[in-house]
Computed example of a mutant assay.
Amino acid sequence: MNLTNYVPSIHIHPVLYIFIVISFITGTFLELFIIFFLVLFHELGHYTAAKVFKWRIKNIVLWVFGGVMDTDEHGNKPMKEEVLVTIAGPFQHLIIYFFCFLAEAFQIFPLSVLELILYYNTILFIFNLIPIWPLDGGKLLLLLTSAYFPFKKSYHFTILFSMVTIVIVLIIQLLFFPFTLSSFFIWIFLFMENRTDWKQRFYVFMRFLLRRYDGESSINGVVPLHVASESSFLEVFSQFRREKKHPIYIIYPGNERKSVDESDCLQSYFYEKAYNHTIGDIFLYK
Rank of each mutant, 00 (worst) to 15 (best):
P150A: 07
R56A: 13
D70I: 09
F29K: 12
I117R: 05
Y47E: 06
E31V: 07
H46Y: 07
H46F: 04
M79F: 14
G67V: 03
W63F: 15
F151N: 06
A49E: 15
N128E: 13
K152S: 14
G137M: 04
L116S: 10
L62P: 11
G45N: 00
L135N: 05
L111G: 02
F91A: 05
F91T: 00
I132A: 01
I117S: 03
N76Y: 15
W133V: 05
G67N: 11
V39Q: 08
T71L: 11
V85K: 01
G75C: 13
G66M: 04
F29I: 02
I18L: 10
L124D: 08
F53Q: 12
F127P: 02
H93M: 13
V68Q: 11
L40M: 04
P150H: 13
F33I: 13
F127C: 04
I20A: 14
M69I: 08
N76C: 07
E115S: 09
T28I: 00
P131V: 00
E73R: 11
T48D: 02
F125V: 01
G75W: 10
A105V: 01
L140T: 14
P131M: 03
L62A: 05
F33E: 08
F19N: 15
L144R: 15
L102T: 01
D136K: 01
N128A: 00
S112M: 05
V21D: 06
P150S: 05
T145W: 08
P110W: 00
I96E: 03
L144G: 15
L124P: 11
F36A: 07
L129T: 02
I117Q: 08
V113Q: 11
N128C: 09
I57W: 02
K139L: 09
F149V: 05
I18M: 09
F41Q: 08
A147N: 15
F65T: 09
V21H: 03
P134Q: 00
F106S: 09
H46T: 02
E115W: 08
A50R: 03
F36N: 07
F37G: 05
F24G: 01
H74L: 13
K152Q: 15
G137Y: 01
Y97G: 07
